[in-house]
Design a protein around this nucleic acid. Structure first.
Length: 570
RNA sequence: CGGGGUGUAGCGCAGCCCGGUAGCGCACCUGCUUUGGGAGCAGGGGGUCGCUGGUUCAAAUCCAGUCACCCCGACCA
């Protein structure tokens, strides 16, 4: 490609709205332009890298025997009513009405469509297993798109679905995907790690996320550098000691007028926060419940959600008053309550503790678990904190933000049962197909690669994801000898299968070098009067930020060497 | 959905308090010079000041409403 006719609109200044590194650089290097919040156009450079990414994903999916589909993005809503996800997705699903008044949606994912095909076509155990996948644009009306392509309302996803006859089959399909994802992300050059994730409310048995650590990421994970333990904060645990007990004694009511928060009560009574008990009332789909954590801990709503088995919300002030007889800030777990009580594990042997008295303006001291408080269950309910002890090796945990680039999920039979996707076994008995679903965010691979490898001058692509392999910089196009030599190298590289951009613009050297660094193509071939007079061609390795000078006859080899050097190994 | 912020030329911004001519840098067009890290000189084009309404002789500026975008949080198969 000749730069003078190539559409790569670079920006000298950083657009004010872009905060994350990948967003800034994708705009500046001319990879993307925003149409609306969370909706982006991919320009030639951006699309080129996305195509290379999809190519890698596609190869690795084919390697595990997956078959490529292209499913409709426009779905009649009735399919989604069958699994209850028309309501389940709620506001996040784009809905539209056709000319006959029939409701449709733009598919945010494709479990339903897969089932609708499977139930009509897969009848026998002999038809299984199957792995079906596609690379397609998904639509989700995200409440808050952010970070450029990190969270979009329209984005490209590789989604695949495994169809098996039983759990053993699912385990195998899941394992195949885990391996395929590992190879895919290695080939993309990403320093990824795998975390156990919350299976959420999708009825899944097991789920793992593939993450790349980055400050621009949206997920928080707890990581141990010692043993490699990593878990999403939604489910992360640590080895923490039980709460320190206070002096044992009878439960006594004390006046604490106006003292509602842990800090206020702690100061007022001169008792450390770790001897206080937070009593929190939540509402699940089956009614109110009580959650107890130490005063120094934070309740994990995601952990509470999995224990409750449905989404939870904090009870409103008037609900609390009605159920507990006291206002928020003066609640305690002792006494009779008509709701289940879940207590964090740290409180199990607690003695001499402080909580609200269930009477406005009063707290109790001397609270003792097992004597005054009788939780229905002791479970892990707290949010892990930085520096706490790793549950597997005892080292310190670190909390880091990460970009989720992939997610693998054992679904089970939830969708196949709802939609009647069944098969007959050898004995003629009907069973629901056992499913898994697996996703990769294509744009997030690009964003993560940029985030983790950029420098102050711009992007640094590895050769797997680079939009092009090499860029030639004839530094002065009014010099015929420079132009002639640059053109010869251009032809030679292209003939060797090296995709090459030549910056034939009538621009000053600084402009070309700045743009080349910004765009981040791994090899720059610099042809200038200065180099010509020395009989050399200059090669800049953008990947390693190194320069070398080679004889004209060695240019192709030098370019290939650099490309090999920055090609990620599997 | 809660909190915070911003909308003035393609990009980055000033002007707004204190109402009266829309301005700066970069980018863009023409010409000449220049050519190793975003050139210089000269000339030139480009703006419904997010939108609607109100106050006023007069609104980018004051008031009300509304929309869009960004950030934090909630949410996120």
């Amino acid at each position: 490609m000749r730069f003078s006719h190539y559409f790569a609109p670079t920006l000298r200044e950083t657009p004010a709205d872009a905060i994350s590194i990948s967003h800034q650089l994708m705009l500046r290097a001319g990879l993307i332009r925003m149409l609306s919040a969370g909706i982006y156009s991919y320009l030639p450079l951006g699309w080129s890298s996305l195509r290379k990414t999809m190519g890698i994903v596609r190869e690795e999916m084919q390697n595990i025997g997956a078959q490529e589909f292209q499913l409709p993005g426009l779905n009649p809503i009735e399919v989604w009513d069958e699994t209850g996800r028309n309501g389940g997705f709620g506001e996040e699903m784009f809905r539209l009405t056709d000319r006959k008044g029939r409701l449709h949606c733009l598919a945010p994912t494709h479990e339903e469509i897969i089932c609708s095909i499977a139930r009509g076509q897969l009848r026998s155990w002999r038809d299984l297993p199957q792995i079906w996948y596609q690379i397609q644009t998904k639509f989700r009306d995200e409440p808050r798109p952010r970070g450029g392509v990190l969270r979009m309302r329209q984005f490209i996803m590789k989604d695949s679905y495994s169809l098996d006859r039983d759990e053993q089959g699912l385990d195998h399909s899941y394992e195949l995907h885990r391996m395929a994802y590992e190879r895919t992300f290695k080939r993309c050059g990403l320093d990824y790690f795998i975390v156990g994730a919350s299976s959420g409310l999708m009825g899944g048995a097991q789920s793992q996320e593939f993450m790349v650590e980055s400050d621009s990421g949206e997920d928080e994970v707890a990581r141990c550098d010692g043993c490699g333990y990593a878990a999403n904060m939604e489910v992360a645990t640590s080895l923490v000691s039980p709460v320190r007990n206070g002096d044992p004694g009878p439960m006594t009511e004390v006046a604490t007028p106006g003292q509602r928060t842990v800090d206020e009560v702690s100061t007022f009574l001169d008792i450390p926060v770790d001897r206080l008990v937070k009593t929190l009332v939540y509402v699940s789909s089956s009614g109110p419940l009580m959650a107890l954590v130490s005063g120094e801990d934070e309740l994990s709503e995601s952990k509470l959600t999995s224990i409750a088995g449905s989404p939870v919300r904090p009870a409103a002030a008037d609900e609390v008053l009605e159920w507990m007889g006291a206002g928020i800030g003066f609640l305690g777990p002792h006494g009779d309550h008509k709701m289940p009580i879940y207590s964090d594990l740290r409180l199990e042997e607690g003695k001499g503790l402080v909580s609200g008295a269930n009477r406005d303006g009063y707290h109790v001291t001397g609270l003792e678990f097992g004597r005054d408080v009788h939780p229905d269950e002791y479970v892990d309910l707290r949010v892990v904190k930085e520096g706490e002890t790793c549950p597997t090796c005892g080292g310190p945990l670190r909390i880091a933000r990460s970009i989720e680039i992939g997610h693998i999920f054992k679904l089970g039979t939830r969708y196949s049962e709802a939609m009647g996707a069944t098969y007959l076994d050898e004995g003629g008995v009907e069973h629901p197909i056992v499913m898994g679903s697996y996703g990769i965010g294509i744009e997030r691979i690009i964003a993560a690669a940029i985030e983790t490898r950029a420098d102050v001058n711009g992007i640094r692509w590895n050769s797997a994801l680079a939009p092009m392999d090499a860029i030639i910089l004839p530094l002065n196009i009014s010099d015929d000898a420079v132009v002639k030599q640059a053109d010869m190298i251009y032809d030679e590289l292209n003939e060797a299968g090296i995709s090459t951009l030549i910056d034939d613009r009538d621009a000053r050297p600084g402009v070309k070098m700045k743009d080349a660094d910004l765009i981040g193509i791994p090899v720059q071939v610099i042809v200038s009067p200065r180099n010509l007079s020395k009989g050399t061609v200059e090669i800049k390795d953008r990947w390693r930020e190194e320069r070398s000078y080679v004889k004209r006859s060695n240019v192709r080899q030098a370019v290939e060497d650099i490309l090999d050097d920055c090609r990620p190994e599997v």
